[in-house]
Nucleic acid binder design. Sequence first.
DNA 1: GCAAGCTTGTGAGAACTTTCACAAGCGCGG
DNA 2: CCGCGCTTGTGAAAGTTCTCACAAGCTTGC
Lengths: 231, 231
Amino acid sequence: MRTRPIPEATVARLPIYFRSLLDLAESTGATTVSSEELARMAGVNAAKVRKDLSYLGSYGTRGVGYDVEYLLYQISRELGLTQDWPVALVGAGNLGRALASYKGFAERGFMIAAIFDIDESVVGNEVGGMTVRHLDELKEVVVEDGVSIGIIAVPPLAAQEVAERLVDAGVKSILNFAPAVVNVAPNVTVRKVDLSNELQILSFYQQRTQAIATAREANRLLRLQAPRKPL
Amino acid sequence: MRTRPIPEATVARLPIYFRSLLDLAESTGATTVSSEELARMAGVNAAKVRKDLSYLGSYGTRGVGYDVEYLLYQISRELGLTQDWPVALVGAGNLGRALASYKGFAERGFMIAAIFDIDESVVGNEVGGMTVRHLDELKEVVVEDGVSIGIIAVPPLAAQEVAERLVDAGVKSILNFAPAVVNVAPNVTVRKVDLSNELQILSFYQQRTQAIATAREANRLLRLQAPRKPL
DNA sequence: GCAAGCTTGTGAGAACTTTCACAAGCGCGG
DNA sequence: CCGCGCTTGTGAAAGTTCTCACAAGCTTGC
């Protein structure tokens, strides 16, 4: 049994290490990697890499580094990537269709079991090699295919209802792309990806530096106009 | 001048409060809102809302709450949403096309100035009412339209080069959808959205609860087989 | 088999974030 | 104009995350 639980911040970085290690194995064929190098690839610092990996166990060798294959295996086991996860995708609009065709999911073992919509004019269409099904068939599919992860890609007003239907069908984890907060029972995990929020955060920092530049410029002009009195 | 800088964690929540307030104003027409109510809408707790808003200034009224309109204005000002931000979108694949058609960006003042690709068979196509331009025209557009935000929606191997070209063109903030770490000068802000990482994080927590359930089940079976000795 | 050179694993401290709890202050009713 | 009820704003405590720095320990070369 594990002594300490793995901190959330660490969990969020494991997929990054995982991809970095895959890249490394593929491109250089290196069999070991130091925390220093892994840190560079993952865009973090070496101490963080070591601390993070130490939560998984003592998988490194002092003086040498980490065995790439072994570490890959351990991380994939930790992340549950040793099995395939069928996923129910709800919403066949722009975003839903893009997600349905997104290769990155299948590469990590996340198979879209089915794509659902409620709009009769969309149901029956082909999307990413699948036929869009009506949302009413959700429970059926979830039970039959053992789906435990759902993706919400519907307009914000429909998000809460879709979330409830997913939970009711038996889904335990939800990835929500709709720009709306969804409330579910505490035993269901929800993660949110909000595209426009991200841009707003960027514009916050962008505007701040612009504001500073503007203030500096204003100061400069003021100084030119009315130079400070000498003492 | 501001005494304390606004913490990152708070900045990340401001867009959520902003949307919650918009929803509130639109649906109920309420003119004031308490931290309690805003917290419920945003999916956080009231103390956090108050602390967060206190970084912007003292905009509430004790015994009453916050004026919805005024707070909306203050947050939008803080986030830089009082101006429009032209955005350069690089990559006209599945994801790029979906992003180009995404209404949520324009709603918050993020206008796609142009969409770029390097694939000659894609350049010239119509996407979301725009013609895909060649990446070589990037700098021209960035300078002419005063673009300061770029979105990367290209395959992982191309991400670093695109980032460099964006920075070279004069972009100061980047939203990276490619599943790859990009390194840029420290005066450029990068935020990452990694769709498959999010699913991996979900599967971590999912698998953990499954593992616990399995262990519990195993224990149950063991107990049945070999019951504990009575004292 | 020992010393030199690396690199891990981890305590300890710093920094950041969240939560608590309550004084301060506003508005309403009498 | 006073007292009561409500809600903010915020110090202080608790919890989490990051960083530092170094002992522990492995490998290689001689």
